[in-house]
Design a protein around this nucleic acid. Sequence first.
DNA 1: ATATTATGTAAGTAAACGTTTACTTATTAA
DNA 2: TTAATAAGTAAACGTTTACTTACATAATAT
Lengths: 235, 235
Amino acid sequence: MTEKARMSSEERKAVIIRAAKPLFAEKGFNGTSIRDIAREAGVSEALLYRHFPSKEAMYREILAYTGRLSSVALEGIRDLEPGTETLVLLIYTLFQVILFESPGLEDEQKHHERLLFYSLLEEDSYARMVFKKMFDSFHAMLEESVTKAIKNGDLAKLTVSLENRFWFAHHLAMALNLCHLSDKPVFSYAGAKRDLVEEALLFTFRGIGLTEGAIRKYYKSEALRARMNAIFKKE
Amino acid sequence: MTEKARMSSEERKAVIIRAAKPLFAEKGFNGTSIRDIAREAGVSEALLYRHFPSKEAMYREILAYTGRLSSVALEGIRDLEPGTETLVLLIYTLFQVILFESPGLEDEQKHHERLLFYSLLEEDSYARMVFKKMFDSFHAMLEESVTKAIKNGDLAKLTVSLENRFWFAHHLAMALNLCHLSDKPVFSYAGAKRDLVEEALLFTFRGIGLTEGAIRKYYKSEALRARMNAIFKKE
DNA sequence: ATATTATGTAAGTAAACGTTTACTTATTAA
DNA sequence: TTAATAAGTAAACGTTTACTTACATAATAT
């Protein structure tokens, strides 16, 4: 915690943001005071106002900064060959990214999630941005893969629209995540978290209309995990 | 808004709770001040302290009071005949109760939801209570209905446990709800909310493993709506 | 060397916070 | 009628809030 006495503006700003983010994530905007942030960052309150015009501006900037990081995690998908296999991988990856920390981001992830949920309750602009980015980075690949999967007979032609299939998958992951914010999950689920996610994935694959055959063929979580890791190893 | 000048302790307490609940629901515990509540209730701040020892105690009492109301809504299920049809009705009802106001509760419902989400972020005891009650009022009927549905060939024997099937259904409804807190939903869903819920129900029925035949046979939303209304008309 | 610029803070500010005190009024019981 | 009780408040309590001011110190450019 002993940092340089004097830093460049950029360095100091980064220090402040790093200190403030977990506080905002944990207790929300109204539950976090300038004093708390200053103490945690190891600087005077006045210095915060050298770098941010107000508490609110600071909060917004932290959200913007956090959002930029979060969207990177999914972009590895783009280069894959569209098809049933990629569709399965895509949804698998979605669940992994939401429900387990991406390597290297650790509790960065936890903060992101909590900020996201606070955003849904208090000012939805952040959530809107995050979801839009997420969708944009998935959409093209999703569309092509779904079309191919239907052509292959792997996916039922549902009345459910393409986007909504995707969002339902996302929602289930998000809700599971929301219920695992505290150490002890809020529900009396059967089994451990890892098994639970396996079950939720199965539920989702059926839900979007994958045939039993396709699920058996393509959903093998060890293989998927290996592929996912390979794709995202670059970063 | 012009109330009696002087009320019994009980009446006044109820007035205060009615005034405070929407404020806490909208802006959270830390975003709501004693002054706000006093103004909204049309009384002095001092009077709040005649009825509640502290702001926090008041908040807790409001949660307890709200939780008592919310659990009533689902108990009509108990008297039904277990089976596939009841299973479908049960999940349909779950979605309706979570996603649309139960008649007579109107925005009471909206407050309940927001308090619930705040609880998941800040102190999960309220959420724990609500979910436990919900589960307890469903569990027996769920178990019997699932067993019968499997015996009838309507439901696939999945590796997914009974409880988790139920929670996944619940989670999807909850997440949809979370994304509809503001007037304009946070996602770019295809279609209106009502259609969206229809699609989510289909997704869920597939997800828990209902056969296509059973879905076609039992999931007719007009009929379900009529039955649901009949069951819950009593209150 | 020195003026300039930018990083930093100690010590404030007014306003808002949750809470309490001291007091007034209406209702009830003897 | 009156004493006791309970509902109600105005005005303050000490503290915390977000934010400023006035001044110091370190780095950089001239």
